[in-house]
């Protein structure tokens, strides 16, 4: 199961929460989790999603003008 997830890393906590709000409106299965240590030295949170939703997630972020650092598979 673990291999099926990716995370979006944001510049700020507020952006992560905005992304959560926007993706939840589209009924996508997502969760805010602490940023995995190996991805960033920051203390923030990131958005975990199922890999199959990647293009939908990217579109939502783009439409909502939510800036993000990167997307990683975990």
């Amino acid at each position: 199961m673990k291999d099926n997830f990716s995370v979006v890393i944001f510049y700020s906590n507020s952006a992560a929460i905005r992304a959560e709000s926007l993706t939840k409106k589209e009924n996508l299965k997502i969760k805010l989790i602490p940023v995995p240590r190996h991805l960033s030295s920051d203390c923030g949170i990131c958005l975990r999603f199922n890999n199959e939703d990647k293009s939908k997630i990217e579109k939502i972020l783009q439409d909502g003008k939510v800036e993000y650092e990167n997307i990683y598979r975990i």
Binding site: N13, S14, A16, I17, P34, V35, C43, G44, I45
Partner: peptide, 22 residues
């Protein structure tokens, strides 16, 4: 605290703060 830690209470605080902005 909102926006500081990754635990669920902090995330909830962040959500509530975001709802104020919304």
């Amino acid at each position: 605290s909102p926006g500081r830690s990754g635990h669920r209470l902090s995330i909830e605080a962040g959500r509530l703060l975001y709802q104020t902005r919304e």
